[in-house]
Nucleic acid binder design. Structure first.
Lengths: 353, 353
DNA sequence: ATGAAAGCGCTAACAT
DNA sequence: ATGTTAGCGCTTTCAT
């Protein structure tokens, strides 16, 4: 009891000697209000310490001005970029992005999504979810929804993804150009986009006549996933001379594992990651990676949401972003023969560009 | 128009042939309901795809079941730990943690806080804010509030902080033990806790008769802040043989800068960070750091909030956590003389322990 | 065990 | 330019 009761709109109306509606108008900066009235209301509001109740507003307005943002794994800096891009765009569009995590756990994800729906989010951004497409579509039929980092064909929800297949292919090509044959891939398990990356890897290997060397180890989009996959690969004979990890977090796990086993990177084994998170760019890490712009994804996602809520678009839209290869110091020519190659220099190359 | 109208509680009541109140009871799992009624309601709800409106509930109930979490800088993995600790504890306590970022910008922070207040958050966790203590206390007088990573004496809000002073002292002592004299500090600028770290640094230097070598360069709790501070220090003669950075992010900036200038770490210069984020532990980074447990902070913060909301505590509580020194490979004996020291081995030591 | 009615704080017509 | 009246979808008493 004795619940600290905060002042309401009627208190302000009373103190300012005007009607509720007037206070309401002033509070959201409507134009048709006399200067006197506005001043009186603002004065009363500030002395009372009045703060509009967003819940009440949403209830009355039938919209929350909130965009729900569910990211699968906050621990991965990539998603922080998505969040930052999205919140900025949301604010710019008069919305608020509220973040919730799924922790790479299906139930937690469902929970997080349910929460935002109950809060009547005006739109949902779901980054790299592992929940069923069915659920996503059910959500999409209730409120505008865009999924990122997970390719899906849907008539009801939008998506922004990287061309994962092309990214994987780029990685293979980079390594082949360096002279590698024994190129292995550690996959992202059941994670979103993992299948596409595996597929791109396989195809590129085949295209280069390396079908016999295809090796896909089971992994995950986490450091542990990388460790797990690397251990599996190291037990093979011969071990690969190059490893394409599911993403940068996994690549970090790979790097640690390789060195723990006394293997030098890139002298003994080359490593390529995916995402190009800030850690990859650290001088001491210098991870070669397939870049994917999280910030832009967040921005685009919000844009798509606003298209739906405010310019009522109804046809689904699926955006595919092009990957870029950022070469750093974890990739080099394989050990042994084939020493007659061009030197590698740090550079960023765009696909088709 | 044609606003996708989601089914409401009365729709369910209608479909199940019972009253709204009964539906309400069933939906939140009340005990005194006949099996028949419960089944009917659940059935109706699921076929209609009914989802309770959290806004309406909050409005009626006068509480939101939501804990607002404002972090200053999502980009810093340390805060991700705080978030993870907090959300887990929140869920365990029947709440939801909703995250918002301040982006190290005072206005954005105020904005984020205002948003959560308007959403009637039942409690607020404010991680490393730069907003005025006055504002924080005003917030605290409206809703239970705990601030982390920022020491403040307050009768109205709670806090969880690291003993920053002790941490800085530990860093100095570690370096002194290695034989360093020219130990500089790059501060966190106006950032929370920065003053305490500077103070601990100064005192420890004085205690060891190194007053003449005290050098505090202006920095910030970011990679850029570290770069900035490092550049300032490198222009001094003689340059320091050891640098204590404001935090790990800054330390990363320091490492990059040193190497860009051809200085080897730790052979030429030793570096110590603060927080011990996962990046510090990477094999290739190996940053010696003063550990601070973000996850635990988040958990403790939620605990304190629940103490206030549910066990109505009213006296303020201020928790101070002890730092730990994690020695890795960025610290070693200074170059030149004084070669007769004990070898350093990787280890974790507790203060007073 | 179930129902009816009032009200949470706001906005949206519709006055004037 | 300003006031009035109905709700928004839920949770409460309070009845029954």
């Amino acid at each position: 009891m004795a619940r600290r009761s905060r002042p309401t709109i009627v208190d302000v109306a009373g103190a300012a000697g005007v009607s509720k509606s007037l206070v309401s108008l002033v509070m959201r900066g409507a134009p048709n209000v006399s200067e006197d009235a506005r001043a009186a209301v603002l004065e009363a509001a500030s002395t009372l310490g009045y703060r509009p109740n967003a819940m009440a507003r949403s209830l009355a307005e039938q919209r929350s001005h909130v965009l729900g943002l569910m990211v699968s794994d906050l621990t991965n800096p990539f998603f922080v970029d998505v969040i930052n891009g999205a919140s900025e765009a949301a604010i710019g569009g008069g919305y608020r992005a509220l973040v919730n995590t799924g922790d790479r756990d299906r139930e937690r994800e469902e929970d997080a999504l349910e929460t935002m729906l109950r809060m009547q989010a005006d739109g949902m951004i779901v980054a790299a979810p592992i929940v069923s497409q069915d659920l996503l579509e059910r959500i999409g039929s209730e409120t505008p929804t865009v999924v990122t980092n997970r390719g899906l064909e849907s008539e009801v929800i939008d998506s922004v993804v990287l061309d994962d297949e092309a990214g994987a292919r780029m990685a293979v090509e980079h390594l082949v150009a360096l002279g590698h044959h024994h190129i292995a891939h550690i996959d992202g398990g059941p994670g979103p986009g993992a299948r596409q990356r595996v597929h791109g890897y396989r195809e590129a290997m085949e295209d280069h006549g390396l079908s016999a060397h295809i090796r896909v180890a089971e992994g995950a989009y986490t450091e542990d996933g990388g460790v797990h996959g690397a251990l599996a690969l190291l037990s093979q004979v011969p071990p690969p001379t190059a490893i394409i990890a599911a993403n940068d977090m996994a690549a970090i796990g790979v790097l640690e594992t390789l060195e723990a086993h006394g293997l030098a990177v890139p002298d003994d084994v080359s490593v390529v990651g995916f995402d190009d998170i800030f850690v990859a760019g650290l001088r001491h890490v210098g991870l070669t990676s397939i870049r994917q712009d999280g910030r832009q994804m967040g921005t685009l996602a919000v844009g798509m949401l606003i298209e739906r809520t405010e310019h009522d678009r109804h046809e689904p839209r699926h955006i595919v972003l092009d990957p870029e290869l950022t070469v750093r110091s974890t990739t080099a020519r394989p050990p042994g023969p084939s020493r007659n190659r061009d030197p590698v220099i740090e550079t960023t190359a765009t696909r088709d560009g």
